[in-house]
Amino acid sequence: MSCQETRVLLHAFLDDELDPVRSLGVQGHLDGCRDCAREHAAHRSLRAALRDQALYFRSPQGLESRVRAALGSQGAIERRAGWLGAAGAFLRMRWAWLPAGAVAGLLAVTVIIIGRFGAPPPGPLADDLLGREVVASHVRSLMASHLTDVPSTDQHTVKPWFNGRLDFSPPVKDLAGEGFALVGGRLDYLAGRPVAALVYQRRLHVINLMIWPAPGEPDRSPTVALHQGYHVLHWTQGGMGYWAVSDLNENEMKEFVGLVQR
């Protein structure tokens, strides 16, 4: 076997993909040719280097349990109520917003019912219900092309836009330098009043930050809740109530909130 032939077959030889006859041919050539043997040895040591365990990325803790939980609940919900379960499962996938409409619609109905039967009592339960309302609003904002009323990355454009539309002036920060780009602002209706919704983006993830006055309430540090696979962080600061919601992971959400609070 010539050097040229050997070089062509060397990789298949290295990978055990050669038939026995040609494999013997390559081996015979390598035994008698220093150059080709050196080439072979170089690739073998490269292989050993690539198989170093330090280069292998094992899946992070929690990923498997999250997937199993999603699969389990998907199975259970689908058994319980066909289309609702399917919509819930789709909602967890951020590329399919259309069926999410069904869920958002249901949540909206829930909200309306609550509205008709009076305000929920204050406390954790109220926060929980409001958290769900915030998620519904977040989902709605992503569905129709109604993410922003004022699309702008400039805080000095977004903030004045709310003048005359709200009876308060929401603090608007541009966090593009920290990796959370301001996308714009929107007028939303939550907890029975118009509120400011600021829209930020982190990679493909959209973050909605809802702000409205909480007169007389003391400052409270952020609490984290998970609704429908969305992280919802709530805190009060300087007489304003804040809700941040996104499908972004918890750590980056906390980072975001830390930047807003600063």
């Binding site: 990325f57 899946s59 992070p60 997937v67 999603a70 699969l71 499962a89 996938m93 992971n249 980056e252």
Partner: peptide
């Protein structure tokens, strides 16, 4: 890491 995690989770649910 973050994007890989998101993409794997998404792919597994899609695979299911």
């Amino acid at each position: 890491g973050h994007d890989a995690e998101d993409l794997v989770q998404e792919s597994l649910l899609r695979a299911f």
